[in-house]
Amino acid sequence: MDQPIKILIVEDEMIIAANISLQLSTLGYDVIGIIPRAQEALSCIKTEQPDIVLMDINLKGELDGIETVKLMQKSYDIPVIYLTANADDAHFNRAKATHPYAFISKPFKKLDLQRAIELTADRIQQNENDPKFNNDSEKLTPFILSNCIFVRHHEKMVKVDIKDIHYIEAERNYCRIYSKDKEYLLVMTLKDMDEKLPNRHFLRVHRSFIVNLSQIDEIATSHIVIAKKAIPVSKSLKEELLNRLQTI
């Protein structure tokens, strides 16, 4: 996703909610609100349409978190992660019936929350890029010319000049292009990307990274630096990197 993932926190213990919000913001997510009550949450979901809802099951008031999710699901297909201090079978089975993406018991570790969000975000991306959800799958493949790449960005193809690309990083079956002022996520493996890119500009220096040779700022023993980012270099590729740099 090009924009930060929008997350709504529905939690009536404000200290816990504030802590979660801080953690998520630090990880780069966009927390669009902290809401303690069901009706307010439903109103916010209608106006803001978050990408993910973190829902406390034990909300105070007429509706608990599970009932709130049931009402939300009548109009919206938004992934839900439940938070609960009461993980008994009855609550779990009621929650399970609403098909949540994750179920986190309080107190939880920061890493539990981070991984639940990452797995949910990954499933959102898979759904968006699945042919069942997107018939125009041809647009997902970048169109590569000698001096530029056309990539899909916000439902249209945009031109990215090769000279402006800093490096490309693997993210499972995707790869993310880091250019001078933007990032682009492509539905393509790094191996496929490596085969298509003009090799006079680019070199795969690690199983997870392809770099633009002209953008390298520093070379260290086990890494290089591009735009203040330290990128690891595999031992087996270090010699090729140095040879290539001599010929530029």
Rank of each mutant, 00 (worst) to 15 (best):
D2A: 10
P4W: 07
K6F: 02
K6M: 00
L8M: 09
L22E: 11
G28P: 02
Y29E: 12
Y29P: 12
D30R: 08
I34E: 15
I34S: 13
A38M: 08
L42N: 07
D56E: 13
K60N: 07
G61A: 07
G61C: 06
E62F: 09
I66C: 02
T68V: 08
V69P: 06
V69D: 05
V69Q: 02
K70Y: 04
L71Q: 11
M72S: 09
S75V: 10
S75E: 14
L83M: 12
T84F: 05
A90R: 08
A97I: 00
P100K: 01
Y101I: 00
Y101H: 07
A102Y: 13
S105Q: 12
P107T: 01
K110F: 15
L113R: 00
L113I: 07
L113P: 02
Q114N: 08
Q125T: 07
N129T: 10
K132L: 15
F133N: 15
E138R: 11
T141A: 14
T141S: 12
L145Y: 04
L145S: 12
N147S: 08
C148T: 01
E155M: 14
E155D: 13
K159P: 03
V160M: 04
V160A: 02
D161P: 00
D161F: 07
K163F: 05
D164S: 10
H166I: 05
E169Y: 06
R172Q: 14
C175S: 13
C175M: 01
K182R: 15
E183G: 01
E183L: 02
Y184H: 08
L185M: 10
M188N: 11
M188E: 13
K191H: 13
D194P: 02
E195F: 12
K196T: 00
P198V: 06
F202K: 02
L203C: 09
L203T: 09
L203W: 08
R204F: 12
S208E: 12
S214N: 10
Q215R: 13
Q215M: 14
I216W: 09
D217H: 10
I219R: 04
T221C: 05
I226A: 01
K228M: 11
A230F: 09
P232E: 07
P232L: 08
S236Q: 15
L237Q: 13
E239H: 15
E240A: 12
N243D: 15
I248N: 05
